[in-house]
Amino acid sequence: MKGRTSVQPGYYPGFSTLGQQANWDEATRATVLKRVARSLELHFFTPEEAPLIEAIFEHILPQIDRDEKYRIPIVPVVDERLHTNRLDGYRYENMPPDQEAYRLGMQAIEEIARGKDGRGFLELTPLEQDKLLRTLHDGKPEGAHHIWERMPVHRFWMLMVQDAAEAYYAHPYAWDEIGFGGPAYPRAYMRLERGEAEPWEVEEQRYEWEAPEDSVSDIYELISGHDLHQATPGQGGTH
């Protein structure tokens, strides 16, 4: 996929939720526009930490298929949450506070990388980086065990993935990518059944979507070491 970037990946070409903003209420519009224009400054992660955490999130939620201008900020959103100490309302008894968890996790990832042949995480190839992170997903990290004793690896993994998902899928560019209609007050939705598009939504146009070859994240495997009866961090309610 290298070199083939686009303004809007996904199966809904030309769909723009932002283009519908005149039909949103004022408070919602302000919230979403603020997100689009957000500052990219970091307050929690130090300038030394920033390249590492950015590299990690480029794998947790990769977007090299997006035009540079249409990438969705993730690290600044996580940074703000940690800086302002906005919690999800709870912490697992076997987890340190989120801020400490991130610092420990970064330390562990760097340690695992160096443990192999002395290269730091940033010096690994993209495929090597992906493979290293995959060992965390699999619950089988190859090193830094003194850190995983203080912090279960699957919990740290879920913390990162959920923070990434929360930043990415909150963004109108992501809504356009997945064909989500977005805010609908005061206008309403009127076509509720059979997946029909509203007059202003776009019909799906599928194509063969492929992940880049130098990655190992386009496979689905349950997170091991993760008891299936365990709730995830930041889980929202349903019914």
């Binding site: 947790i60 939620l61 809504w175 990655s215 994240s217 386009d218 689905y220 929202g236």
Partner: peptide, 24 residues
């Protein structure tokens, strides 16, 4: 979408490109 993404990270172990794919 955010709730669905979180459900997919537990239900399928989705992350990275796999998460992008399932979300599409």
């Amino acid at each position: 979408p955010i709730a669905f993404a979180k459900q997919m990270m537990t239900a399928k172990g989705a992350w990275g490109w796999g998460l992008r794919r399932i979300m599409m």
